[in-house]
Amino acid sequence: MDDGLRNELSKQGVVVVKLEELYNWGRKNSVWPLSFGLACCAIEMMAASMARYDLARFGAEVFRPSPRQADLMIVAGTVTKKMAPQVVRLYNQMPEPKYVIAMGACAISGGPFKQGYNVLKGIDRYIPVDVHIPGCPPRPEALIHAFMTLQRKIDAQKLTGPDRARHLNADLPSEFPVPLFGEHDLVPSKNPNVWRPAVVVR
């Protein structure tokens, strides 16, 4: 259907959409985050859902305490090595489609605590991350921006074809191995299927 006809119909009060658009429209406006705070960023995450910033405007105010009911995991704060297996396990427990926002410098790379012996140098070593928000901590506006970025990302996902969304592609994994506590460090210290060191072009 061409755009002219569609516009004409919408003026008449008839909305015509593709199934893909309707599906994504519904999903992107009802992202339920997992209520799961790790550190300082969790307070800003709460502030984003409270009175002044009001995350409810984006359909994402329903913080679910159980991963089984959540669509989105906001990794808000420093992921320590003691906590990393639990974070991966929570991710595995979430049903598809699921998304991850790495909120703050610590979740991205270890941030100011990067040199710590018990600090994981970025959660993307074990699970795939959809949106990164820099900041220490990011302001609630930054989290809202991340939400809007995620909404755009969801909106662009395909239902069919080779580049269809992950949850519709049975070949792609939806669970990732949980690292084990070793004698000196986590085993393994990263998941090479998810994360590789940055390639530097000079």
């Binding site: 704060g77 420093t78 320590t80």
Partner: peptide, 21 residues
């Protein structure tokens, strides 16, 4: 220990002022 991020160790490897943040 789930949020043990080694503040003391890091502080012993940085200057006095560097620990303020």
């Amino acid at each position: 220990g789930y949020l043990h991020r080694n503040h003391e160790k890091i502080a012993e490897n940085t200057s006095y002022l560097g620990s303020m943040p």
